[in-house]
Design a protein around this nucleic acid. Structure first.
Lengths: 268, 268
DNA sequence: GGAATAGTGTCTCTGAGACACTATCCT
DNA sequence: AGGATAGTGTCTCAGAGACACTATTCC
């Protein structure tokens, strides 16, 4: 943004050939809750490098395209859905030389939180896309470098540096729902308290007390408000009150503190 | 990172001429505490666009240079100092088309927290650099668009979108010292409790109770440990115990909660 | 001794965690 | 009636906020 310093290798005047050209992409970490578990959308690569490996959806940023716009466009192309209730924010940028063996690529990663989305529709770019349960993928550093292992012990290789990006994204999501109202981004427009609680439990991998959770939601302004009407019938048990999210993303006072030493949930 | 989708404008195979080229820069928001106030380092632009306006230090990323390395290099070139005790982390990336009128530039912003640094040394790239007290600059949206006004009412125009970047950086710094041990990054290797407390007060603009602050530091593991010896003599009053930071940046349990409705400090 | 700063103790109240019983719907 | 889920009340304890006095140094 400033005049380049001499050691930057570019003289005053911005000779277009004087500074190194970069390719810029956006990569998406798209999360949703399915079956009470945190899932992420990955696409299988059809070409080298990393042919057959699973990668975050993404693509090049257009010459006159805003980063944020590019992220929304890629999301639409990969999932076939406009983001209506969900949330999209920038995660961080990855630009190590050699992270793509072919050329220098700067990748701006985005975090997407969405209500339960359908399976990717065939016939689009997302032919080879599918949802993965995050806790079916081993955490980086624990097993086999950056590769991951699924529940059956099969290796789930992630392309490029995407395992690290994914780990960062999970951390960010877990932190975000703690002190903002973003947990509601995982819910449909109307939701029950249990559904909201399942979001926290899925992202954090912890169990929460139902009664204390209710008390916290009720005393926390800006998170959720009850609406007239109850859960659609058909299920057993007493129908639950429906809630809707407040407009916009707000910081929570008090925050929903993650249990410090709660037991990890085991779900399979 | 993935094979570009057709609508991205780049075919399979990465024809280098097929995707749009970007210039990539790093911009630094370098903060320190001077005279118990949060300061940021800005450089005055010597050429158009925005000639004479104040800008964040920064420059182009080299063709084979890591983003993190580029940020460290720019810091060294602009301040003449290696970062020994301070902290450097990525803030976020700004890439709106038109944010630089000359060309498409993607700027990866970094947040730097450092102990009181000397004035920029003349004779380097930092000829026109100086420290600004952050609260002498009006917050964006309050006064005159993205320009800022200093304590005397003079306009302090910031170049490009740097006013917004700076506001984001202040928010990040305020949040970071709340739940991590990063407040110590503003202190010298040895520091007193009062000096550490002044960091929180300067960044947050609030007053804290001296006794409760001491209790919190003592019961918070991973923040600071007392060392043998006391404050160098020469000052009035009882000499204070010296502390040093624990190694590395850790999350704090419990966090240092920002006062919700504390009075804002007025210092001038 | 006086000024200035560092260090310590106590009270109170809010809020989180643990926990058991009642209410409402379905078949 | 019985099963299943939703909704409510209470006790306890830890931690944050407010606050006043003592200790050590320099002049």
């Amino acid at each position: 943004m400033n005049d380049p310093s001499p050691s930057s290798g570019a003289p005053e005047g911005y000779d277009p050939s004087a500074f190194p050209p970069f390719a810029v992409t956006v990569d998406l970490t798209i999360f949703t809750i399915r079956d009470n578990r945190l899932h992420v959308l990955l696409v299988q690569r059809g070409a080298d490098p990393h042919k057959g490996a699973w990668a975050l959806p993404g693509g090049f940023v257009g010459a006159e395209e805003d980063l944020h716009t590019a992220a929304h466009r890629e999301l639409r192309e990969e999932t076939g859905l406009e983001l209506v209730d969900g949330h999209l924010e920038q995660l961080r940028t990855y630009g190590a030389p050699g992270r793509d063996p072919r050329m220098r690529v700067i990748s701006v990663a985005y975090l997407v939180l969405a209500p339960d989305l359908p399976d990717p529709t065939p016939g689009t770019d997302a032919d080879r896309a599918r949802w993965w349960a995050v806790d079916d993928l081993a955490l980086p550093g624990l097993v086999g470098g950056t590769d991951r292992v699924d529940a059956d012990g099969h290796r789930v290789p992630l392309a490029f540096d995407h395992a690290g990006i994914l780990a960062d994204a999970v951390d960010r999501a877990a932190a975000k729902i703690e002190y903002t109202s973003l947990a509601t981004a995982f819910c449909q427009r109307l939701f029950t308290l249990v559904e909201l609680q399942r979001v926290y439990e899925a992202v954090w991998g912890t169990a929460l007390d139902r009664r204390n959770f209710r008390r916290w939601v009720e005393q926390t302004v800006g998170l959720a408000v009850p609406v007239e009407g109850h859960m659609r019938k058909g299920a057993v048990g007493r129908p639950a009150t429906l809630y809707r999210a407040r407009d916009g993303v707000v910081e929570l006072h008090p925050p929903m503190l993650r249990p410090t030493n709660a037991r990890r949930l085991r779900r399979h």
